[in-house]
Amino acid sequence: MPAELLDLFWQFMLFSLLAFGGGGTVLGLVDRVAVADKGWITPAEFSAAVGFTFITPGPILVLAPFVGYLVAGAAGAVVATLGVFLAPWALAMGSAHRLRSYLQHPRLRAFGKGAGPAIVGLFSLAVLTIARSSLSNVALVAVALIAGTLMARTKLHPIVILAGGALAGLVLGIPALEGALPEIRIP
């Protein structure tokens, strides 16, 4: 297997093994590795991968084939998917079998409690990275603020909010408006 595919497999397996509290907790880690360290994908492509998980059935870690495809085509999609779901599958089977007592040890829970704050830090950096690359003018900042407010204060499904964002983007992209919007740069 070419080195890049092996690396994809291994990195996604690592993501899955550190995903204490669900797949969403390692988005910051995925951003750090796939965007900043490896340069596999751009911040915009990472943002799109995250956004698309809201309109895709299944867990958040189903972004693996999206990232894998952008890195190495169909083979990359397969390898990244295998990497991210193989270890949890094995651990879940172990839980159903005799390994249960080892997998319920307080040390595992303590590991998750310690890892949580570090993951928050990485998650914050990921959101900042996405913001830097996506919010290029004040109108897009307003779209982000409105989307966040709707997410926090209403029961609207993220799919609806994302569709609204896309529609707002189309309107803001009208040539007459586009040139009139003040640009910004997030530090």
Binding site: A48, G51, S136, L145, I146, G165, G169
Partner: peptide, 18 residues
């Protein structure tokens, strides 16, 4: 432009999750 708007909305949603 639609993708730009979608990505801006992702920032808002992810901030809430964070």
């Amino acid at each position: 432009p639609a993708i730009e708007g979608l990505l801006a909305a992702v920032v808002g949603i992810q901030s809430v999750y964070l």
